[in-house]
Design a protein around this nucleic acid. Structure first.
Lengths: 325, 325
DNA sequence: ATTTATATGTCAATCGTTTGACATGTCAAA
DNA sequence: TTTGACATGTCAAACGATTGACATATAAAT
């Protein structure tokens, strides 16, 4: 690959001059500028960003750690994160932690070795301390680690409320709730909290089932819902904390000969694209995925540029009524 | 951040010694080694990969250019690519081209500036020449650019054959085929070729409809299928070249009051996870997505290490019969 | 006593780029 | 004629690591 020296030599100017046109500094005549640019094209020159980053102490890399991109929610998030990163000339390093603490730690160290400008954590399995002395800009999605580490989440409590209220209002008498692992200290647990408070207050029979949601084990989903329907055949409402699990709920209900929404009403969460192409279309609580992605990039940038920023970013959710309720 | 000099000073040894323990070269006593490692931990030292990459002329970065990670096929592919990259200590730079030639070109240049070890192209909109003088290891997915650029695809012709044969064998009399934009020179077009040859040979009425499949415009899918069913109400078989479009086909058929598979038989392509959680479960032609991802990484590595490798990698497909046929 | 393996250090170059300091020269305006 | 804006060059240091060449020292083996 051509270096700046090759360009300088071929263009018959000094390296400093080439650098000057590259970075638009100091005085450069139109003639020289064009000459240099032409030479760059001829040599197919691309400045070495590794060298630049080394000097500038800025890599323009952003690490994105998520459980798995193959999960629709995270794939959509990743897509938006990449989109907004690109807008500000940053690149995204993709890391699938598979919710494995060892991998997560290795990824964090890898990202530090690569001197990323910031880390977006959509996965969180480590001890709080591990994140504290990271001394790299960071933002977490749906996990509140510490007073100082900014997080983005949607209004989980409100979401749980909207979903539960809808089912109650539609007349459900026994509602099942499928959520992630409550031991993980995730803000999404507030959905469950809202669910239990509301069903309790309205005195509605309810059952809560935990899954390892984020590892995205489809066999497990199937099994859990199958068991649920067997053990509680009188369930007439299901509030699932992800659209994908809601899809499996639909599948199992159909298999069990139950009609949706007549016999069982189902509501999901997230409003991923898939919620829309499934029949019946899934009623769900929409998370503003694009805004989450956009804001994540913005928060990294603000930390980098020492602008002030909110520690707590709770975005609004919205009930999307479709065919399963 | 601590540098190797900080470690050396604090540990009371020379920089060379630290480098030696870091890279396991030359003689190092157990005592010094431990001392150095301890110091690294204390300082939270992580070697600067930018500096290393600069010197070694190897960044351990791999660029992945795809239309959009939010498309299930590409999200699964990305997941596997990242998985296998990680196994060999490479990191993945995620790039969503949105099938925009300008973006694609900018991404390629960006990746070159970052001195990636290789590029995996799942998107391809540029002129052939642009790829030729890339002088970076590259591998394309489902696109044959040139004799010298290795590609990976599954056996598209065979896949088209399997799908069409199944529909014919099930007794379909008028089959619709929905494919991507045939103007793009993609290997997936062979599916269409197989479809047209087989329906022709069996003298079966058929209609082929193109979409901008890769841009993943769901409104467009919906509209196309809606129109199809209106213009050809007697269609009793649909072969869609992606599972997602098949899902929309299901949706529109249900909406039109058609039973699946009794009135219309539908077969998709890819066998993405979603094919499995939709009701009715989608019959499909399975592409070995994991193997494609694995092989892509392997081909980059082989080019890098000057091992020999196949230019043409055509992987087997498999018919997965489920509920829609 | 000599050799040799082990252990560590010093020094300098290198990767590709940026940048500040400084020198030199041209040309036009005051 | 002097001043100052414009244009370009030379030089060296810096970013953080690696590495080869070479020196030196200790301890164990012959």
């Amino acid at each position: 690959m051509a270096t700046i020296h090759d360009v300088a030599k071929k263009a018959g100017v000094s390296v400093t001059t080439v650098s000057r046109v590259l970075n638009n500094r100091g005085y450069i005549s139109e003639k020289t500028r064009n000459n240099v640019f032409r030479t760059m094209e001829e040599l197919n020159y691309q400045p070495n960003e590794l060298a630049r980053s080394l000097l500038r102490k800025q890599s323009n890399l952003i690490g994105l750690i998520i459980p798995n991109v193959s999960h629709p929610f995270f794939s959509e998030l990743a897509s938006y994160v990449e989109y907004y990163a690109y807008q500000q000339n940053s690149k995204v390093l993709l890391c699938n932690s598979h919710m494995d603490p060892v991998k997560e730690k290795e990824y964090i160290e890898m990202l530090k070795r690569n001197r990323v400008d910031g880390i977006i954590m959509g996965s969180h399995t480590l001890e709080v301390d591990e994140y504290r002395n990271l001394n790299s800009p960071i933002v977490t999605i749906d996990r509140q680690i510490d007073e100082n580490i900014p997080f983005i989440s949607s209004d989980n409590y409100r979401g749980g409320q909207l979903a539960t209220e809808l089912l109650i209002q539609k007349g459900c008498r026994k509602i099942a709730h499928i959520c992630g692992n409550l031991k993980l200290n995730m803000l999404a647990n507030q959905r469950t909290q809202a669910f239990e408070e509301l069903t309790g207050r309205h005195n509605i029979e309810h059952v809560t089932i935990q899954t390892d949601m984020n590892v995205f084990d489809q066999k497990q989903y199937e099994h859990i819902i199958h068991t649920l329907l067997q053990e509680h055949p009188d369930v007439d409402g299901i509030f699932s904390t992800s659209d994908i699990i809601a899809a499996f709920a639909i599948k199992e209900c159909v298999r069990a000969g139950k009609r949706i929404p007549e016999d069982v009403r189902i509501i999901g969460y997230d409003d991923v694209n898939a919620a829309n192409w499934i029949v019946p279309e899934i009623t769900t609580v929409k998370q503003p995925i694009e805004e989450i992605g956009r804001l994540a990039i913005e928060l990294i940038r603000k930390q980098l540029e020492d602008e002030s920023f909110e520690r707590q970013n709770i975005l609004p959710v919205k009930l999307i009524e479709r065919a399963t309720t």
